[in-house]
Design a protein around this nucleic acid. Structure first.
Lengths: 141, 141
DNA sequence: CCACTATACATGCATATACATATATCACCA
DNA sequence: TGGTGATATATGTATATGCATGTATAGTGG
């Protein structure tokens, strides 16, 4: 049987999120990072010393979800935490190991982006990403 | 900080999936069903005797994921399984309890749909859902 | 009927998700 | 300065997700 088009906006987005995540995770597999972890590493490489809450806002993730994922990355020694002036905060940085891992994953991610655009060649991706980001801004928070 | 627009198609979809799921789950909360469970109950109410694999295809879910969720619904006595002529298959039906639960959730889901369209009033939702379903068809499988 | 392969579902493991709640720290004010 | 409410993060619990693998049954060629 084929996938059905659900009337539910949420269900439709979840369907798409699942199949697209599977594509990306499969293509990232040789690097040993999953797409969620890749997003975090990439963000930290660009913005060092982001806090847990800052990252949660940027990625539209619940901070309790992010806490668990950061713990995994920390155990892998891909990121490390420092305490800021506000001692409640944890300021995160990517480590040398994490950067190496990210650099290994980067071309695989680009391959996934390319494969995604190939598979979705009859979709207006500019319009789609604009709409999707609007949803994140308007529905989130 | 505000959410950032990610260059990653997958990350963007996951951001949207998260915030929209939170909206729907919050509005469904009085019914005691989550949006994933709601989708399954609604599908089974419309299509009795669907198998695990048939549902997985329809919902674009991995069948091993679906197995766990079906188990929860079965333990709640909202659905029940029968064995078909092919004794490997499990044919699922919604129970009277499940139907009642679904009917309780239905108006809450409609409220979530309405609230979603209100929040996303400057998004072309027809175009968005068309694109999103195309992704499910083209990227999935 | 008997291997052999394919299919349907389940299980082990790891990660992702978030609500309710707990804890530590900060900011402010009396 | 000490109390009080707010904020940043962590933890308990439950569900969601999917890959690798296992098990039972079906189908097929001899």
């Amino acid at each position: 049987m084929k996938p059905i088009r659900l009337p539910c906006y949420c269900g439709s987005l979840r369907q798409a999120s699942r199949v697209v995540t599977q594509l990306y995770d499969q293509m990232l597999k040789p690097s040993g990072v999953k797409i969620t972890q890749f997003s975090i590493l990439k963000l930290l490489a660009a913005c060092p010393d982001l806090t847990t809450g800052g990252m949660a806002d940027a990625l539209a993730m619940d901070s309790t979800t992010l806490t668990r994922t950061l713990k995994i990355l920390q155990e892998n020694r891909w990121i490390e935490a420092a305490t800021g002036t506000d001692r409640r905060q944890r300021c995160w940085r990517i480590t040398a190991d994490g950067l190496q891992r990210l650099q290994h994953a980067e071309p695989l991610w680009e391959g996934a982006q390319k494969e995604f655009t190939r598979l979705a060649d009859d979709v207006d991706l500019d319009s789609l990403t604009r709409s999707v980001f609007l949803l994140v801004q308007k529905v989130g928070g």
